[in-house]
Design a protein around this nucleic acid. Structure first.
Length: 463
RNA sequence: UCCUCGUUAGCUCAGUCGGUAGAGCGGGUGGCUGUUAACCACUAGGUCGGCGGUUCAAGUCCGUCACGAGGAGCCA
């Protein structure tokens, strides 16, 4: 008897037709009369369920008919054509072994639940169709990203999770300490003596691997990081989480346009990859989450992303005649409402906005010739907003140092970053892709909490 | 952190003008020879988020706290 995965039966139906097989999985639903019944079984290998027909001649018929949703069973039976029209084939059971029953209070029912409720049962929600699809896509996108960069010779660098530099400047940080919080060692001036802490200094969880990965860029030319990132912001929105994953490529001897080319190629690669590897899941999202999803993704595959400068964006917003809550003026940061208008109404596709005023961007971004703007780029996409933020880095030692001092940062904190500009400095660029935001964009899911297995947000670290 | 809206059965929700609790699904029991969120009958199930106040009377009005959702800011 052959132990087979449901995915194989769906993909190579002819091979199994008429054969007796063994399948095992979890009961999604059971419908039974006193003479026969149907089990919809999901074995985890495939998005779709396989229908099991079982008849009252089985010695444990009553036991099977009473099984609750979620039960684990092993089925031995023949693959046959189905008499019903909702599925092309089914398994006629010769034996159904109950492996693990499911208590009657199994929370997932044969009905629609709200996503909010599902978040309260995060340990069980992957067994629901929508989450099953989301997390298979998540796995595929992660693989697609590695595949994209590895095919192009990029080296995967593991930048540290615990960082000793408190100067990454990308947001509020989570402190990492082994000090006894009820009895903190103090210095003479009353401040905490971090010399006694585990690392002998104050440390935090990383908010970005970029500064670290730039060093490896200067050795391997093209590199990327892909790992968890932590931000201790009190953000209560659909697209912010305290723990999320980020991909940060960095390329040497490259400018902002090379950077954008890479980002665009990567996004298209990921879309192609997912459409090819998970058609059933994508079809499901298109039917139940966002009716325009496939149309949109297919359009993007074959179209060029938009590209406008910050200055042009400001002019377009001013000319739009739209009444924005925040008035538009050159020098102001683009608000969410502005970004949405640009990508969702004006261009209706992904768009790079480049060359932002230096005042609203980070110190390490390369100064343009106008001395007013920096070579930065944000990729905005409809529905999600900013999905990528990147820049060409300031490779000129004097200019970088001047920026650090202008902003009142301490030169000593950046000694190793500055060293890069002393030993073989070269024009280089990179960006950060929000992994979960990419998943949201590809699936149409609207809340970041629904694309992370166990999401961490302020006041929520259950599970 | 700020603004808005929520919290009623296991789940999704209704509950009028303040008068003492309802439905569907799910669970249980029984029926049904091809179901597709199966169907039919019966049945159990409630500290109406917590605390305080107004009132003869509060799920309903007021205050407050907790939690959730949406928006803003921060960003990916």
């Amino acid at each position: 008897m052959e132990k087979v995965l449901v995915k194989s039966i769906f993909r190579e139906t002819e091979k199994f037709m008429g054969k007796v097989v063994e399948v095992s999985g979890w009961v999604r639903t059971i419908r039974a009369s006193n003479a026969f019944g149907f089990i919809e079984l999901n074995d985890g290998s495939f998005f779709k369920n396989i229908q099991i027909v079982f008849e009252s001649n089985l010695e444990n018929y009553k036991e099977i008919a009473k099984l609750g949703t979620g039960s684990a069973v092993r089925v031995f039976g023949k693959v046959v054509e189905s008499a019903g029209d909702k599925q092309p084939f089914e398994i006629k059971a010769e034996k159904v072994e109950v492996v693990g029953t499911s208590d009657e209070d199994f929370p997932l029912q044969k009905k629609r639940h709200t996503l909010e409720y599902m978040r309260t049962i995060a340990h069980l929600r992957p067994r629901a169709n929508i989450y099953n699809a989301v997390f298979r896509i998540r796995s595929l996108v992660a693989f697609a990203i590695h595949s994209f960069f590895q095919e192009r010779g990029f080296v995967y660098v593991h930048t540290p999770i615990i960082t000793g530099s408190d100067c990454e400047g990308a947001g509020e940080m989570f402190q990492v300490t082994t000090l006894d919080l009820n009895n903190l060692p103090k210095k003479d001036d009353g401040t905490i003596n971090y010399g006694e802490d585990f690392f002998g200094k104050a440390t935090n969880l990383t908010v970005s691997g970029q500064l670290a990965v730039e060093n490896y860029c200067a050795a391997f030319r093209n590199v990327y990081t892909f790992g968890p990132t932590f931000r201790a912001e009190n953000s209560y929105t659909q697209r912010h989480a305290s723990e999320f994953w980020m991909i940060e490529p960095e390329i040497a001897f490259a400018d902002l346009h090379d950077d954008m080319k890479l980002a665009e190629d990567m996004v298209k690669y990921i879309i192609n990859f997912v459409l090819e590897k998970a058609p059933e899941e994508m079809e499901f999202f298109n039917s139940f989450v966002d009716k325009t999803l496939l149309e949109r993704l297919n359009f993007i595959k074959n179209s060029e992303f938009g590209k406008i400068t910050y200055t042009e964006a400001i002019e377009l917003l001013k000319k739009s005649g739209k009444q924005f809550e925040y008035p538009v003026e050159w020098g102001c940061d683009l608000q969410t409402e502005h970004e949405r208008y640009i990508t969702e109404e004006l261009l209706k596709k992904p768009v790079f906005v480049i060359d932002y005023p230096k005042e609203i961007k980070a110190f390490y971004m390369r100064m343009n010739e106008d001395n007013k703007t920096v070579a930065a780029m944000d990729l905005l996409v409809p529905g999600v907003g900013e999905i990528i933020g990147g820049s060409q880095r300031e490779e000129r030692y004097d200019r970088l140092l001047a920026r650090i001092q202008e902003l009142g940062l301490k030169k000593e904190d950046y000694w190793w970053y500055l060293d890069l500009r002393r030993f073989g400095s070269n024009p280089h660029a990179g960006y950060g892709l929000g992994f979960e935001r990419m998943i949201m964009y590809i699936t149409g899911m609207q809340n970041i909490r629904d694309v992370i297995p166990f999401p961490r947000t302020p006041k929520n670290a259950e599970f």
